[in-house]
Each structure stands twice: as structure tokens, then as C-alpha cells.
């Protein structure tokens, strides 16, 4: 088990290294002169030169890369060109919106998907199964940003229950959670649909397994068989999907934060693009990729624990 853990850790670090190189090359090497790129076509040569100095573009590419990575590792993410504040500060600020939003959406996803998947699998071919399959089929087809617009139309415009966008800050937790509720629902809809379907099919697959027949033959009821034998084996594919969903959740958040004007990481990176603030884009992208890789790592660890065959004695 420790060897497997070491192996996974090494590949985690390698993936991060390669990802950082890809991001760096795309943003620093491909555009030619990043300073000129950031300032646009009409920039004065001396402004460009000043920015080059400010960004430390004098050094060679490898030196600049190491500089950037060294900074990332010590918490120095550079200084935003447009906001004139350290990127780390911006990130710290914005993460207070994005992380709760992602967790809120994940919570809703699990809350809906697990009972729905269990219900559909245990009533295979029945009315409940058809209902869950039909609803999730629709949930998969609805773009989350459009769903968000419909939610705004109904709950903010027609009913006036919540505000249509913006974020009041955490000084008023009730209002803050209220502001995150519609975005979280919009984010959770497609994710819950996927997860419910995966859970259903994973359960049905394990219910066909020989050991399920063994359990039935020794006197377990259908219900006990599902709960004691099928669920834990079905957890392995479900965990894998859950890990992948984190990546979709982040991508979805970038869009949803824009629909609701939430000051999160997604909106930060998006503003960075429109303002050509490469420092912000580069560091925030790296952070997002780090988050995805770290979650994948955690998921692999989780199912190593769930499956004794992967645990080496």
C-alpha cells in the first residue's frame, strides 16, 4: 500500500509539473512578447518596456518559469497588472465565494443523486426507475447557464424570493447563502443527473455479480443484499465519476459565476482574459489545475481504501 501511495504521489507531482509547463508555454512563449500582448496594438514602446521590466521578462524562459513556480510554491502568485494588487490577495478574496459555491453544489448533487440512483436501481424497470431515468435525461440536456436564467426568471423576477445576482459578502451569512442558492442549484442539476445514472448502472452491474447470488442464497433479503454487498462495490465507479465531476463543477462555476455576477475565481479568470491580464490568468489557471489533480489523487486514495484488492498488505 505504501508503495502504491508513493507511486501515486510521484505521478501527482509529475502531472503538476507537466501541466505548469503547458500553461507557462501557452501564455508566455506562444504570444511572443507577453508585455506587448497584454497592452494591445496601440501601446507605446516605452510603456511596453516598463511592463517588461515590471513582469521580469528580461530573463530567459526557463529562468522565468522557475521564478514563477518558485513563487507559486511560496504563495507569491505575482501582482495583477490591472488590479495592482498581489494575485494571492485576489485569490484569497475570491475563493471565499467559489469554494462554498462548489461545496454547496456538491452537497445538493449528492443529496439528490444518491437516493434517486438507489431508488431507480432497486425498482429496475418500474415507474420510479422510468421517472428517474426520464428526469435525469432531461437534466443532462439542459445547459446549466440557461437553467440558471430560468431560475432567475422564476425565483428572482416573478416571485422575488432572492436577488438575481451579486454577492453580499459573508458578514451576513443568511444573505450570502441565499445568494449562492440559485447558482448552486443550477450547477448541481447536470451533475446530479450524471451521478444518479452512474450510481444506478453501477448498482445494476454489481447486482448481476456472482457474490450477490451467494448472498441471496445464504438468506439475505434483497434490501440487505443491496445495502451490505452491492453498495460498497458500486462505490468504486461512483467515486471515479465524482472525482471527474469536480473538474466539470469548476468549469461550470466559471460560467455560472458570470450569470449571477458572483465575485469568484471563475469570474476572476474570465476578467483576466478580457483584460489580457496574463499574470492573473496564468496563476489562477494553475491553481484550478492543481485543485483538479489534487481531487483526482484524493479520489484514487479513497477507492484504494474502499477496495481491499488495491490495498497491498
Amino acid at each position: 500500500m505504501w508503495r502504491a501511495l508513493l507511486h501515486r504521489t510521484i505521478s501527482l507531482v509529475a502531472a503538476l509539473a507537466v501541466a505548469s509547463v503547458v500553461i507557462f508555454v501557452m501564455l508566455q512563449a506562444v504570444p511572443g512578447d507577453p508585455a506587448a500582448f497584454m497592452l494591445g496594438l496601440n501601446a507605446q514602446p516605452d510603456t511596453v518596456a516598463a511592463l517588461r521590466a515590471e513582469l521580469g521578462l528580461e530573463g530567459s524562459l526557463p529562468a522565468r518559469y522557475l521564478d514563477w513556480i518558485g513563487g507559486m510554491l511560496t504563495g507569491d502568485f505575482g501582482t495583477s497588472y490591472t488590479y495592482r494588487v498581489p494575485v494571492a490577495e485576489l485569490v484569497a478574496d475570491r475563493i471565499g465565494v467559489s469554494a462554498p459555491l462548489a461545496l454547496y453544489a456538491l452537497g445538493l448533487t449528492l443529496l439528490v443523486a444518491i437516493p434517486a440512483g438507489l431508488l431507480a436501481a432497486s425498482r429496475r424497470g418500474g415507474v420510479a426507475d422510468w421517472g428517474v431515468m426520464g428526469a435525469t435525461q432531461l437534466g443532462l440536456a439542459v445547459p446549466n447557464f440557461w437553467f440558471a436564467m430560468l431560475l432567475v426568471l422564476v425565483f428572482a423576477v416573478s416571485l422575488g424570493w432572492v436577488s438575481a445576482g451579486g454577492f453580499p459578502g459573508w458578514s451576513d451569512p443568511v444573505a450570502a447563502i441565499g445568494a449562492l442558492t440559485l447558482p448552486a442549484i443550477a450547477l448541481a442539476l447536470p451533475q446530479a443527473s450524471i451521478l444518479a445514472r452512474v450510481l444506478r448502472s453501477a448498482l445494476l452491474d454489481t447486482l448481476d455479480a456472482d457474490y450477490i447470488r451467494t448472498a441471496r442464497a445464504k438468506g439475505l433479503s434483497r434490501r440487505a443484499t443491496v445495502l451490505r454487498h452491492a453498495l460498497r462495490n458500486a462505490a468504486i465507479p461512483v467515486l471515479t465519476i465524482l472525482g471527474l465531476q469536480f473538474s466539470f463543477l469548476l468549469a461550470g462555476a466559471i460560467i455560472i459565476e458570470n450569470v449571477f455576477f458572483l465575485p469568484g475565481l471563475g469570474r476572476l479568470i474570465f476578467q483576466g482574459i478580457t483584460q489580457r491580464d496574463l499574470v492573473v490568468v496564468q496563476s489562477v489557471t494553475m491553481l484550478l489545475v492543481f485543485a483538479v489533480i489534487a481531487v483526482t489523487f484524493a479520489v484514487e486514495l479513497a477507492y484504494t481504501l474502499a477496495d481491499p484488492r488495491l490495498r497491498r498488505r
Binding site: A209, D210, Y211, R213, T214, A215, R216, A217, K218, G219, H229, R232, N233, A306, D307, P308, R309
Partner: peptide, 21 residues
């Protein structure tokens, strides 16, 4: 009340007949 108590059964494929977890 009968399975396992009065009547029990074993199957052909021992490699898959037991729950791996």
C-alpha cells in the same frame, strides 16, 4: 427463513462468488 437455514447453495465459480470488499 429457508435460505441458509434449511437449504444452502454453492456455485461453480469460486473466484467471483465471494464479495471482494
Amino acid at each position: 427463513g429457508i435460505r441458509g437455514n434449511d437449504v444452502a447453495m454453492i456455485f461453480q465459480e469460486p473466484m467471483t462468488a465471494l464479495n471482494p470488499v
